[in-house]
């Protein structure tokens, strides 16, 4: 019998957006997905206001030192299993901020510190277009 929680996750994933130090570009494109041109709500993808309701965590930006414990706290609150989507080049690999002194690391490194089995989706681009984000989410949900 398939796991009930993963079955629900596939049907209508609810997303929670965490900005961890990006330049706003990816954050705007995430919001753009919800507005009339792309309108992902028709597929049941919905931006929720609490991490406790979320199935997917959208993280944008390199993780700055001050935001690192807060991101880990948010991740702990998300019901498992969940998918962490690293939106943009900075979240995937720190991009242009690789050598900056106040950046703790890319998102996967920071979250693996508290949960080694976390599931990640990487959406490269600066910023990734809304179409790319939608495709990434579809691919991620197929794999679960």
């Amino acid at each position: 019998m398939p796991n009930l929680s993963t079955r629900w996750l596939k049907k209508s994933p609810w997303v929670y957006h965490v900005g961890t130090g990006g330049c706003n570009n990816c954050d705007i494109e995430i919001l753009d997905c919800l507005t009339p041109r792309f309108d992902v709500e028709r597929f049941g993808i919905k931006l929720v206001v609490s991490p406790r309701h979320a199935d997917v965590l959208l993280v944008s930006g390199p993780v700055a030192y001050h935001i690192k414990p807060r991101l880990q706290e948010v991740y702990k609150q998300v019901p498992k299993p969940c998918v962490v989507a690293c939106i943009g080049a900075c979240a995937c690999s720190m991009g242009i901020f690789k050598d900056a002194y106040s950046v703790a690391g890319p998102v996967d490194k920071v979250i693996k510190e508290i949960d080694p089995n976390a599931i990640f989706v990487y959406v490269p681009g600066c910023p990734p277009k809304p179409e790319t984000m939608i495709m990434a989410l579809v691919k991620a949900l197929q794999k679960i």
Binding site: G21, A64, I67, R70, D99, A100, V103
Partner: peptide
Amino acid sequence: GYIHKGIELLAQQKTYDQTVFL
């Protein structure tokens, strides 16, 4: 101050052409 990344110091390690992208 949550998302301070240190761009000004980073710019000192990049050439003028690269700083435009930064």
